[in-house]
Amino acid sequence: MFLERVSWRASKRRPRYMSDLLASLAFRTAMIAFVFNIAIALYGVLSRPSLVKKFLCLVAFTDSINIFAVFIGFRYTPGAYPSPPILEAIPTSPAEVETLINTSVDPLPQAMILTAIVIGIACSIFLLTLILMYYRHYGTTNIHEAEEGEEPHAEAL
């Protein structure tokens, strides 16, 4: 039936036309740019001494991975724009559902990423509170300076 028609391997054929080749090249470049972004953000998390910069890099890291995953759910429909996975007409006919299947992008990565974003925000809130308390305690967000074993600021909390 229709699930057999939607074959995963059917799309694995090589691009034949010049425009397809260009599109394929462009998509590859975009994906590799996301990989570079992930690596740069990871570098920031691992090697910056300031906790605030670590936090910002962590947010950039999560967001790069999220965009990467949304991109995996994208779909190339030659000659037409891919549509968001939302039906438009309210008294719907089976033909319109069929049209949506033929033009819509994959909804599953988007739903997973919605979950990932919420959990990312939950972690960010807690991390921000911890960084704020760290600053109030040591008077700096630099982890190397606080390691020296100096007395915490007496007037700070």
Binding site: V6, Y76, T77, I101, L108
Partner: peptide, 13 residues
């Protein structure tokens, strides 16, 4: 950038 939906996504749609 596949041209067809994956079967799982297609069944959800």
């Amino acid at each position: 950038v596949p041209r067809e939906l994956r079967p799982l996504g297609a069944s959800f749609v």
